[in-house]
Amino acid sequence: MEVPRQSSYGTRGLAPPPALCGFLLLLVLVFGVSYAVGAQAGSVAPGMHGTSTSSGSDGDGGAEMGDMRNMDHGNGG
C-alpha cells in the first residue's frame, strides 16, 4: 500500500513562504527608515515655490521652460 505524500506546505495551508514574508518585512523597514531620515532632514529647497508666471527675465532658465510649455507633444494637432 502506498503512503500518501504531504504537500510541501505541510499543515500550514496556503501560507506564503517565509522568504517572502522576510523580504516584505525588510522592505517595510527600509522604507520606514528612509521616511524617518527624510522627515528629519527637512525640505530640500525650502525657498522653492510652485510655478510662476514670470517671463524668465531673471536669468534662472524660465525662458527655456516657457518654450517647453508651448511645444507640441505629438498629439497630431
Rank of each mutant, 00 (worst) to 15 (best):
M1G: 15
V3K: 14
V3E: 14
P4H: 01
R5E: 10
S7G: 15
S8F: 10
Y9I: 10
T11F: 06
T11M: 08
R12N: 06
R12G: 02
A15N: 04
P17K: 11
P18D: 06
A19V: 11
A19F: 12
L20Y: 13
F23I: 01
L24D: 07
L27W: 02
F31G: 05
F31T: 13
F31A: 11
V33T: 08
Y35S: 13
A36V: 05
A36K: 03
A39M: 08
Q40S: 12
G42C: 03
S43L: 14
V44L: 13
V44D: 10
A45D: 12
P46G: 02
G47C: 06
G47P: 01
G47V: 07
G47K: 14
M48A: 15
M48K: 15
H49W: 02
G50Y: 04
S52K: 04
S52V: 00
T53V: 03
T53D: 14
T53R: 08
G56R: 01
G59Q: 03
G61R: 00
G62V: 06
A63E: 14
E64P: 00
M65L: 15
G66M: 07
D67K: 12
D67Y: 08
M68E: 14
R69A: 09
N70D: 15
D72T: 09
H73M: 12
H73V: 12
